[in-house]
Design a protein around this nucleic acid. Sequence first.
RNA 1: GCGAAAGUGGCGGAACUGGCAGACGCGCCGGACUUAGGAUCCGGUGGGGCAACCCGUGAGGGUUCGAAUCCCUCCUUUCGCACCA
Length: 848
Amino acid sequence: MTEFKPQQLDKKWQAAWSAAKAFEVDVDPSREKFYCLEMFAYPSGHAHVGHVRNYIIGDVMARMKRMRGFNVLHPFGWDAFGMPAENAAIKTGTHPEQSTLANIAHMKGQLQRLGISYAWGREIATCLPDYYKFNQWIFLKMFERGLAYRRRSAVNWCPKDETVLANEQVVDGACWRCGTTVVQRDLEQWFFKITAYAEELLRGLDTLEKWPEKVVVMQRNWIGRSEGARIRFPVAGPEPGGASPDAIEVFTTRIDTIYGATFVLLAPEHPLVEQFAAASADPAAFRARAAKLRAGDREARLTGTLEKEGFDTGRTAINPFTNEAIPIWVANFVLAEYGTGALMAVPAHDERDFEFAKKYSLPIRVVVAHGDETPSPDAMTMATTNYGRLVNSGPWNGKEAPAVMPELIRDAERRGIGQGEVQYRLKDWGISRQRYWGTPIPMIYCDKDGAVPVPYEQLPVELPKVASFTGRGDSPLAQVPAFVDVKCPRCGGPARRETDTMDTFVDSSWYFLRFADPRNAELPFDPAAAAYWMPVDFYSGGVEHAILHLLYSRFFTRVLRDVGLVNFDEPFTRLLTQGMVLKNGAVMSKSKGNVVDPDDMLQKYGADALRLYVMFVAPPEKEVEWSDAGLEGSFRFLLRVWRIVDHWAETIGGEGIPGCRTEECTESERALRRKTHDTIRRVTVDIEERMHLNTAVSSLMELVNELYSFSESTAHGAPSRGEPPAGRVERPQTIGALREAIDALVVMMSPFAPHMAEELWQMLGHVDGLSKSGWPVFDAAIAKAEEVVVPVQVNGKVRGRITVPPDAGEDRLRELALADPGVKNHTAGKTLVKVVVAKGPLVSVVVK
RNA sequence: GCGAAAGUGGCGGAACUGGCAGACGCGCCGGACUUAGGAUCCGGUGGGGCAACCCGUGAGGGUUCGAAUCCCUCCUUUCGCACCA
């Protein structure tokens, strides 16, 4: 009996893999590639079992695909820029680079101790200049194409610390450090024009067949396409002392209700508000009212409980369909960023407008009827928002919406007062961050030449090593004169560098491409390498990235396609969103003190038990509750595998054991072979297609149970039953069947428990390691049952079972079913209505 | 409010396309082996009933020879969006 010492096996085999560079790969057009990727990690310091679950899921897939003969790229890297490191620097003075690199080293060790099969030779860290150089390169390409542009935009500003705050640093409207109320401040900032790709990003979603529906829906909602029309409402009356604004443009998706538009609403930020204020009798009072609406209550806005408020501008606009003059109001619930920042209010058929009209006694006109009656506005208690037949709509009366909408739009276009338009909720992506620990934006500002891009040959614009981390000032880099003061690349005159850095989501929007060619110094990656490895075949990570990271990555892929670096649209063919690991019902976090450190588990049970448990406990997408007892159960299963293999290793081990021919086998040998092949089929499909790793493990457990029963029935007995009888020679068929079962078991265990599997494989006398073993091949002929038990239902309840050959015909099944004693008991004295023979097989008898 | 997903033993979960509900594991009970057992091996384990049998997948209805699975209504939970005109 050889003892199972998991910790020693972990060390032994991890060293062997590392020495053999077992997981490093190269482009090889003769082999089919498989790119398996887990979302790279933010180096927070310590990975807990929740993080680690994702890497194990990917590793099971990668190891399995490797054995299936694929050329598997399975890389890892670090999303290494970001605020936590900078915040820590502000508090402790440790430079972000120092803490980040230390964290990476520790976490890398953790992953290696788990035996995750990464191609560490391709490791990347986004905080290193050889990576972020290409963030800048891509930025410049975007700038050239008009996809990177600058405009003023609001940021959170803490007046006491005099610093910009990220949204995460604003807690309940106050600064995370000093508690001062945060104010908004306008700064010039860089944006990526993701909206230029809105339609394409939306349509591409239809091709993502192997993405969770949930994620596709979330992205679709986020992009938020609405079809409608932009209509101009002329502003009535001349300006008392100046030029009159000619019209207010509104966006509507319900042009069918336009005859019911009885007032116009402007967002408080709308430019006309200021114009109206300036022209009003008391501009200061006007502005004060608008400012009050703008301030709003941030909290109430977030929870959707903001009370609707507004005021009359005293001006009117002409509804271009009714030609009536209608009042123009300003309202706090109108969003400046969406549509045109102005809307036509149709209180009868929009709940928000209805609420507003009731509050301020504005006119309500019903223009859509359902059925014969047209409700009176006074009797209405709520808006009717569904489509119907138009009434009070002039020449359009009696027409049905939505069919009439294109006609109305055509009419507006003909009269030159508007046109059909598509709006998206998706907004351009603001990438400027007033932070140190990120990629410098490669732009230079010259008084003469304006915003000038840094020439490609001057990349990377490196982060200066010295910077003070006081947490004060608008941008830390602005305090480093050697960084800021440069010559203009165009005119050579004095100029200033951009001191903002990029949003770290830029880093993660293309890292999967970098892995194809991670040491390229000239380009982000070699297009040929990307053409071979991409797209990612299997991508897994947390659902918290369902929108931003995955949408930005799809955006970047298309930009790089248009730049000519890649030749496909979608970067991730198949996506798995793994569930979180909870402890005591809560997400693991340092602050809650409920973190399970994988290293503690490794010390106790070894890497394989932890890996197996995490895969067995639930399907990968599901949230799970951590359980020490469950881990122990998995450890016991490994012991059980170890014992049974060890028990037989000498008898069946060594190369050159002949296979066994089914026809020479006893019934129990054939049964073992059936189980073996049935397990091969199930485990293969469960890992490769269904990603039901938990049921893959349970199938393996069943095979092990079968091996114990089979052993019990041989002269050898099962493990722990004392010494086997001496001198007994087993039938070659027994040895063959066992060899087949045990070899398959060890190979199929290896994605889950690679260290133990390698050791057992060696113990079984195989000269080459598991990297050469291949994956067991399912043989339908062996798996095919010789006879099947067919349940027989009478009126839907199982009343008997018949045993037949698997190819028994329907007539034979029917005959045997009706002759079964249990069935007879329930059919005697009744009238046979019908007999259904279903595939399955199953016989269903109906009597009355 | 809108949208999506999910409700199965004491627990985690299984049931692939409508076909034997509860695989596999945890826990619990019993047995074997033992100086010993919190190790190991074997067996049992949805509820009720002595039994034949009856009941059972959140609740109620429907379709079907047959429903955890499909349809309708409702309840609960989780997630996403949240005044998007």
